[in-house]
C-alpha cells in the first residue's frame, strides 16, 4: 500500500513539473502525452511486436546462461578442485562489461538474433556461475555430514542435499541476474538493431518523441515488475518448506 502511494507521488511530481510548465516538453513529455504516445505505439506502430522480440531475447539469452551456469556453479561449489580451477577466471570474466562486447559481437555474429542472445549470455553467465557457487559452497556443513552418516555418497550428497538445500537461493539468484539481463538487452538493441524496445527508444530519440521514449522505459519497468512477481510466486509454490 505504501509502495503504491510512492508511485502516485512520483507521477504527481512528474505531472506538476511538466503540465505546470516547469520543464520544456521537448525534454520531458507530460504523463498524458506519454500515455497518448504509448497508445499510438501499441495500436499503430506495432510496439507489441517490439516488446515480444525484446522479451524473447532476454528470456532466450538468460535461459542459455542459466542452463550453463547453474550446473557449473553447483559443481564449483561442491568440489574444491573445480573451484580452484575456475574461480579466478570466472571472477575476472565477471567484470568484463557485457555492453563493451556489443561492437565485438557485431563483428563476430552480425546484428542478428544470435548477437543479441550472446550479449545477454555473456552478461549473465559469469555472474550466475559465481553466485551459485558461493551459495552451494556455503551449504550447512552439518547437513552434509548428516547425509554421509545416513549412507549418502558424494554424488547423492550433491543431488539430495546440495541441490535441494540451495534451490531457493538459486531461484533468487536467477531473479536478480534476470533483472540485470534487461539492461544488457536494451544496450544491445540501442546499437545495430531493427526491432525491440531499445530500438524503438533510439528511433524516438531522433524524432524527439520523449513521450514514446518514456513509455518504452516504463514498459521495461512494468515487465520487470511482473517477472519479479512471477518469480516470487513461483518460489513460494516450489519451496513451501521455507515459509512453514
Amino acid at each position: 500500500m505504501l509502495g503504491l502511494a510512492f508511485f502516485a507521488l512520483f507521477v504527481a511530481a512528474w505531472a506538476v513539473a511538466t503540465l505546470g510548465g516547469f520543464v520544456s516538453a521537448t525534454f520531458l513529455a507530460d504523463p498524458v502525452t506519454m500515455l497518448k504516445d504509448g497508445w499510438l505505439l501499441l495500436t499503430r506502430f506495432g510496439f507489441l511486436h517490439d516488446i515480444g522480440v525484446t522479451v524473447w531475447r532476454v528470456v532466450g539469452g538468460f535461459a542459455l546462461a542459466a542452463l550453463v551456469a547453474v550446473p557449473v556453479g553447483i559443481v564449483m561449489g561442491a568440489y574444491k578442485p573445480v573451484e580452484a580451477l575456475l574461480e579466478p577466471f570466472v571472477s575476472f570474466a565477471r567484470y568484463l562489461p557485457a555492453s563493451a562486447f556489443v561492437p565485438l559481437l557485431i563483428l563476430w555474429a552480425g546484428i542478428g538474433e544470435l548477437q543479441k542472445l550472446l550479449v545477454i549470455f555473456i552478461g549473465s553467465v559469469f555472474q550466475l556461475v559465481l553466485m551459485v557457487a558461493v551459495a552451494v559452497g556455503s551449504t550447512r556443513r552439518d547437513l552434509v555430514e548428516a547425509a554421509y552418516t545416513l549412507g549418502s555418497n558424494e554424488r547423492s550428497v550433491v543431488r539430495r542435499v546440495l541441490l535441494p538445500a540451495n534451490a531457493p537461493d538459486i531461484a533468487e539468484i536467477l531473479r536478480l541476474v534476470l533483472g540485470w539481463a534487461w539492461t544488457y538487452v536494451i544496450v544491445a538493441e540501442l546499437i545495430g538493431s531493427s526491432s525491440g524496445i531499445g530500438h524503438m527508444i533510439i528511433d524516438s530519440q531522433s524524432l524527439l518523441a520523449t513521450g514514446q521514449m518514456i513509455f518504452g522505459i516504463i514498459v521495461i519497468g512494468l515487465i520487470g515488475l511482473v517477472s519479479d512477481f512471477a518469480f516470487k510466486a513461483g518460489n513460494r509454490a516450489l519451496f513451501p518448506w521455507r515459509l512453514a
Binding site: R140, D142, L143, E145, A146, A147, T149, L150, V161, P164, A165, A167, F239, W241, R242
Partner: peptide, 13 residues
Amino acid sequence: GMVFQSYTLFPWL
C-alpha cells in the same frame, strides 16, 4: 548412525 547436537533435519523434506 549419528545424532548431532545441532538440528540437522533436512529442512526441504
